[in-house]
Simulated scan of single mutants.
Amino acid sequence: MLEVGIHEADKLVQVAHALSTRSRVDILRLLNTRSMNIIEIAEALQLPVSTVANNVKVLEAAKLINTELLPAVRGAMKVCSRNYDDILIGLNSSVRSTRDGMKLYEVEMPIGHYGDCEVHPTCGMATHEGMLVREDEPASFYHPKHVTAQIIWFRKGYVEYLLPLEIPQNAKIQSIELSMEMCSEAPNYDNDWPSDISVWVNGTEIGMWTSPGDFGDRRGVLNPSWWLDWTTQYGLLKTWRIDQERTTLDMQKVSDVTLNDLYLNQRPSLRVRIGVKSDAVHKGGVNLFGKQFGDYDQDLVMRVSYTMDELE
């Protein structure tokens, strides 16, 4: 669920604008049950491909959908998926509950604030102002200034974050969402560079996503002016969701891991690891984007939906 409040005026205006035309609403309707490429959407709605492409850009900018470049018979095709089933607009900024009584807890962890790592070249990190450490020096990932990183890349290994679970003791977690912008890590960039990127929660692998490439065919929306044109530019926004039945990635089931597998009652935090396994088929590395790089104004976002059990 996407929750946006009146205290987030810019975000609210962007979402409202994305929903303000029938064409964009129809696109969201088509993406209700499956992903579709732009040509399929254009044919279904009987609209010009250029019109659909422009509307897709608006929906993607509002984070209502995400797009992924996949190989096609000629070149690549842009495949669209919907990010949310529901949108909650809160006009009272103090309200953090949905209409069905569900409560929401959200933490945005800067990507530089990892607590553990094991990385191998190519690797490096940068801030919005410049390179943060020497490239291809794994030891530099342990330097205290890593907390300021806004983009991180490595060919093999992982980074691991500890996210606080500041929820009441009698809370019953219904779902956990993890959202991040990421892609593969190739020399310079390569749109056709697959990488099997896995995510673990509390030591349990919840699933794997094969990133199609390290994207550099255009500049990232948020990239600083000093960032070179011939290197990694942007990633794809991926949303993992674990509930009481399964784990999904962008609404598609990726594993049978459930909340019960994560031992949530045994710790006040959530341990999230992102990396490429040593036995992965495609060892194509990872790029992680912070709020000031890539296309999406966010870091690693965790959203926890929960209900309240009555205390005995």
Rank of each mutant, 00 (worst) to 15 (best):
V304W: 15
K145V: 06
D279F: 04
T122P: 15
K103H: 15
T51F: 11
V133K: 04
V281P: 08
T258G: 04
K253R: 03
Y158T: 01
L236W: 10
I38V: 00
D85V: 08
K291S: 09
F154G: 02
E137D: 13
I111N: 12
S225L: 14
L45R: 09
E312Q: 12
N287H: 15
L222K: 03
K253P: 04
D309I: 12
T122W: 03
P168N: 08
V304N: 13
Y234E: 08
K253W: 00
C123T: 12
R22M: 02
N83D: 09
S179Q: 15
K283T: 03
V133Q: 03
L162T: 11
M77R: 14
K103L: 15
S198V: 08
K291A: 08
G124A: 04
P168A: 06
L30Y: 14
L264G: 06
S305N: 06
R219P: 09
M1H: 13
E68R: 13
D190V: 06
V276P: 02
Y189I: 06
M36I: 06
D297C: 01
R271S: 05
R96C: 11
L162C: 06
L165M: 08
V52M: 06
G115Q: 13
T21G: 03
G220P: 13
L311N: 12
M109E: 10
M77K: 13
T231L: 14
P194F: 00
G290S: 01
A186T: 08
V159C: 00
Q266Y: 13
T33K: 05
M131S: 12
W200L: 07
E106S: 14
K156S: 05
E166S: 14
E43P: 07
V107I: 14
D86H: 10
S20M: 00
Y189M: 10
I27C: 10
T232G: 13
V56P: 07
D196Q: 09
E310P: 06
V119E: 03
K57Q: 07
S198E: 12
T231E: 14
S93F: 03
S175W: 03
L64P: 03
D250S: 07
T239M: 14
G213R: 15
P144E: 02
K238A: 03
T127K: 05
Q150C: 07
V119Q: 04
W240R: 00
F141L: 00
D279Y: 02
V119L: 07
E310K: 14
L91C: 03
N32G: 08
E3C: 06
G112V: 04
H143T: 11
F289G: 03
Q298G: 00
N170K: 12
D229Y: 10
Q46P: 00
L270S: 04
G285H: 09
A16L: 08
G130L: 11
K238I: 02
D229A: 07
D243Q: 05
T239K: 15
G75T: 09
N83S: 12
V79I: 07
G294Y: 01
D86I: 05
D26S: 12
L70C: 11
